[in-house]
Amino acid sequence: MNRRVTVIVDGRPLQVDVGTTVAAALWNAGVTAFRHSVTGEERAPLCGMGICFECRVTIDGVEHCRSCQTLCADGMQVKTS
């Protein structure tokens, strides 16, 4: 069996396999609004490779982190907007 880690998404604990990016974990958990655009639209990942910046969330208090470039780690706090 794969090893699992727990990340906390908007206060809700979420178990995911090691090696999962935060973007994948959020989408799997049903999150579709990763961030709000400058005119208020809900946005989710586009490029999956770190260039489009659509998947930005707050990770462990740091704003504007690209969730597709970040692996889930135990106890990680993720905030969507």
């Binding site: 994948a24 989710a44 490029c47 597709c68």
Partner: peptide
Amino acid sequence: WTLPGAFGLGGMQALVKSGLE
């Protein structure tokens, strides 16, 4: 194309390879 669930092509591939179900 800005709706959640509209991915890039390579984007979808990369996301699936990094755990997207």
